[in-house]
Simulated assay, not measured.
Amino acid sequence: MVTNLERFKKEMEPARQLYACEIRDFAKNFDALGEMSMREFPDIDVQEYIFDFEKVEGTSEEELDKIHDEISNYMKEFSKVHGIEKFFQYSCIWL
């Protein structure tokens, strides 16, 4: 029997791939960010996707806040344009 979580993950997989590729490419514009990792936190019916970026040592919190806002706004628009708003609702960006 397929669970709701399994169904959710299968439905989100194409959006996850598209989103992950785009956020990784967009983050390359910022010298203050290093490698990205993605983690999944499952719940009963859905899961949350965390996109976590390494920070370059010495980067101020103010600069990181600006970068976070820019990436978040960009990915929100990207998600709208590509019809993956549902995935965006279950994703988080950590710097």
Rank of each mutant, 00 (worst) to 15 (best):
M1G: 14
M1P: 11
V2Y: 02
V2R: 15
T3L: 00
T3W: 00
N4G: 13
N4P: 07
L5H: 02
L5K: 03
E6N: 13
R7Q: 13
K9C: 03
K9L: 06
K10H: 08
E11R: 15
M12F: 04
E13P: 04
E13M: 12
P14Q: 07
P14L: 00
A15F: 02
Q17E: 10
L18Y: 06
L18W: 03
Y19E: 12
A20Q: 10
C21S: 13
I23Y: 07
I23W: 11
R24L: 11
R24A: 14
D25E: 15
D25L: 14
F26D: 07
A27S: 14
K28C: 07
N29T: 05
N29E: 10
F30C: 06
F30Q: 14
L33I: 03
L33T: 06
L33C: 06
G34A: 06
E35P: 08
E35L: 14
M36Y: 13
M36K: 15
M36Q: 15
S37W: 08
S37M: 11
M38H: 10
R39S: 10
E40H: 05
E40V: 13
F41E: 14
P42V: 02
P42H: 05
D43S: 15
I44W: 10
V46M: 10
Q47P: 04
E48L: 10
E48P: 04
Y49M: 05
Y49K: 06
F51L: 12
D52G: 04
F53Q: 09
K55F: 01
K55C: 07
K55G: 06
E57Q: 10
E57P: 07
E57M: 06
E57N: 11
G58Q: 06
G58P: 12
G58S: 05
T59W: 03
S60Y: 04
S60E: 07
E61S: 11
E62S: 08
E63F: 00
L64G: 09
D65M: 03
D65C: 03
K66Y: 11
I67E: 08
I67P: 10
I67F: 02
E70G: 05
I71R: 06
I71G: 04
S72H: 14
Y74E: 08
M75L: 07
M75C: 04
E77M: 07
E77C: 05
E77T: 11
E77K: 11
F78Q: 05
K80P: 03
V81C: 04
V81I: 11
H82Q: 13
G83K: 01
I84T: 00
E85S: 08
E85A: 01
K86W: 00
F88W: 13
F88K: 00
F88Y: 14
F88C: 00
Q89W: 02
Y90V: 00
S91V: 02
S91P: 09
S91F: 01
W94P: 03
L95I: 05
